[in-house]
Computed example of a mutant assay.
Amino acid sequence: MSRDAGHRGPTGPKRYGPEKPPLGLPALKLPEAIPAPEIPRHLGWLNYWSAAAAKAIGFPDPSRDAELLSHARRTATGGWVVRLTEDPLDLGDRAHLAALLRAYERIPEIGGRSVP
């Protein structure tokens, strides 16, 4: 008996595992596949990166992070709070989606997409 026996979706067998992300967003690894606990799992509108997380993802790089730094503040403990857009993230807003895509492109370590 196949693994999919008895599990059918509207168009065929149910798929197991992550599906292709929408809107051109990158595929992120499952949390257990991310190589270090300090690496963020994903990006959101507001992001907190501890000092260890910032180091693991190479943030900030003054030559590449001007856009992110314009919406960031350093915490007393050396971490960072980074806001991707002025208003809460709305993936229906092209400017918001573009900001999210740029951030994922800039920091491929997020979501375990590359090893730091």
Rank of each mutant, 00 (worst) to 15 (best):
R73L: 04
S63Q: 15
L68S: 12
L69F: 07
D61P: 02
S63R: 08
G44Q: 01
L69W: 11
N47T: 02
A66P: 09
S63V: 13
T77H: 10
A76H: 14
H71W: 12
H42W: 12
A54Y: 02
A51K: 14
W49F: 15
H42F: 13
R74T: 04
R73Q: 07
W80D: 05
L43P: 00
H42C: 07
D65H: 15
W45I: 01
N47L: 00
A52Q: 08
V82F: 04
P40N: 05
T75P: 04
D61R: 09
G79A: 09
S70R: 03
T75Y: 03
P40M: 03
A53V: 07
P60R: 04
A52W: 07
R73H: 12
L69H: 06
G44K: 00
A72T: 14
E67N: 06
L68C: 03
A76C: 09
S63E: 15
L43K: 00
L68W: 09
H71I: 02
L69I: 12
I57M: 08
G78M: 07
H42T: 11
V82Y: 03
V81I: 15
L46M: 07
W45S: 10
L69V: 05
G44L: 01
H71P: 05
S50D: 08
W80I: 09
A54G: 11
A54T: 08
L43N: 01
V82A: 02
V81C: 08
P62R: 01
P62Y: 01
H42V: 06
R64F: 03
H71D: 02
P60N: 04
I57A: 07
R73Y: 14
T75W: 01
L68V: 04
V81S: 08
K55C: 06
L68G: 06
V82M: 08
G58S: 04
A51M: 01
L68E: 09
A72N: 11
S50P: 12
P40G: 00
G78C: 08
A51N: 03
R41A: 12
L68K: 09
G44F: 00
L43E: 00
A56Q: 11
V82Q: 05
P40C: 02
A53R: 03
G79K: 13
A76R: 15
A52P: 08
R64W: 03
A76M: 10
H42S: 12
L43M: 06
A53W: 02
G79I: 13
W49P: 06
A72C: 13
G78Q: 06
A52L: 12
H71G: 10
W45G: 02
A52H: 07
R41M: 07
S63N: 15
T77Q: 10
